[in-house]
């Protein structure tokens, strides 16, 4: 029972990690809370579903979701944030919330207000680590997440572009003086973060076997809590916080059975952590 909850928690945490990464990366380079990112996540689920209906292949639908969301992220950077960045940060934030609401409405108009089934049969082996058993779908989520996180880590830590990405997040102006096209680097952050969110949307669509217009609402605010918890803009911190929240939610709610709304937990955790570590778990002062 507890092991089953842990397995659920790992899968949930993996999806949070994929979704939150984009927020963290965007905050890292722009210092903007990219609320519309949750709309990109839902877009990933819809595109994945449509691609799955068209092709019958889960893997193709995953790739399609990532590609469509990468493109959406680039467009959002170019047409929503770039023109607003010289203004106080509250203005891009409000624009972002506006875009998120507009996206939810667009999904409702295009696909209808009800939940659609994303019943991709993915044959994926289940995984047993001692008493811990991950079901096929859970193993799929964890594997895709770990592969994407691993690729991102390799890019950031081993490549010249990754060095430029990290430097841009610390001081874009001085980084540009070394020949780095920091605008392109910012766009790349959107591209990668949005593709990750697209993967998360498609994976959760399959895992829950449903896709609906407001599926991004809860992730929208929960991921904000997670990025704050991990230390704003801190990538390892947001991954750690994602898994902690995923596990805490399933364990506390599933085992202790306290009458406590599951989705509030991330915020309680955020408040508690911020009281003792104002810059988040791995954030720096």
């Amino acid at each position: 029972m507890i092991w089953q909850q842990i397995a659920n928690g790992i899968a949930t945490g993996a999806v949070y990690a994929l979704t939150t990464l984009g927020l963290t990366m965007v905050y890292g380079v722009l210092r903007v809370l990219h609320v519309a990112h949750a709309g990109v996540y839902a877009l990933g689920a819809y595109v994945g579903l449509w691609a799955f209906r068209a092709t019958g292949s889960f893997w193709l639908s995953l790739v399609a979701a990532m590609a469509a969301c990468a493109l959406a992220g680039l467009l959002i950077e170019r047409f929503l944030y770039a023109p607003l960045l010289h203004l106080p940060r509250i203005i891009p934030l409000i624009a972002s919330i506006g875009l998120f609401i507009a996206m939810e409405e667009a999904f409702r108009i295009v696909a209808g207000p009800y939940a659609l089934a994303y019943d991709a049969e993915v044959r994926f082996g289940s995984l047993a680590l001692g008493p811990l058993r991950l079901t096929g779908p859970q193993t799929l989520i964890l594997t895709v997440t770990l592969v994407l996180l691993g690729l991102l880590w390799l890019l950031l830590s081993r490549s010249k572009v990754g060095l430029a990405m990290r430097a841009t997040a610390m001081d874009a102006e001085i980084t540009s003086s070394f020949g780095v096209n920091t605008r392109a680097i910012i766009a790349l952050n959107f591209l990668i973060g949005s593709a990750m969110a697209g993967a998360a949307g498609a994976l959760i669509g399959v895992y829950d076997n449903q896709v609906w217009p407001t599926m991004g609402s809860v992730p929208a605010y929960k991921c904000l809590a997670i990025v704050v918890l991990g230390g704003l803009g801190n990538i390892p911190g947001s991954v750690l916080a994602s898994f902690l929240i995923g596990l805490a939610e399933t364990l506390l709610i599933g085992i202790v059975a306290i009458p406590f709304p599951r989705d509030a937990l991330a915020f309680v955790a955020m408040i508690l952590v911020l009281m003792f570590r104002p810059y988040g778990l791995l954030g720096k002062g």
Partner: peptide, 19 residues
């Protein structure tokens, strides 16, 4: 100075060789 605070010394230098 504007040293990139969380890059190592070597990474700061590597950034200088970006061109």
């Amino acid at each position: 100075r504007r040293i990139l605070p969380d890059l190592t010394v070597e990474e700061n230098l590597r950034l200088g060789t970006y061109v």
